[in-house]
């Protein structure tokens, strides 16, 4: 019997891994990919709750669809920005992008 708890624990673990990835990856693209992990963790959460708590209303799933759409849009833009920075600085290491410090 798979309970709601299983899905939520899975979601939380995935979320934790995603946070770890955001805070430690050097490559900027790696950061964005870890961000995708977080989005997915949230999606699992949404859909699981929707299916368990209110089977007739599909609000959770709808919201998950919106999240996917927005996440896609955002990752597109993020990658575009990384490309633009790469053109100027010839690097994608997040360590070296620190001109905001003063």
């Amino acid at each position: 019997m798979i309970t709601l708890g299983h899905y939520i624990v899975l979601s939380v673990l995935l979320f934790g891994i995603g946070v770890f990835g955001i805070l430690t990856r050097r490559n900027a693209i790696g950061i964005l990919m870890s961000l995708e992990l977080i989005f997915n963790a949230v999606n699992i959460n949404m859909v699981a709750f929707s299916k368990f708590l209110t089977p007739d209303l599909v609000y959770g799933e709808l919201f998950a669809i919106f999240i996917i759409a927005v996440a896609a849009a955002e990752s597109v833009l993020g990658l575009a920005i990384i490309l633009a920075i790469y053109r100027k600085k010839q690097t994608v290491n997040a360590d070296e992008m620190n001109i905001m410090k003063y």
Binding site: V19, L23, I31, A94, M100, K101, Y102
Partner: peptide, 14 residues
């Protein structure tokens, strides 16, 4: 702490 590195900012926030 103000080193321009976004990841460190994110760490602090988190």
């Amino acid at each position: 702490t103000i080193n321009g590195n976004v990841q460190s900012y994110a760490l602090i926030i988190f």
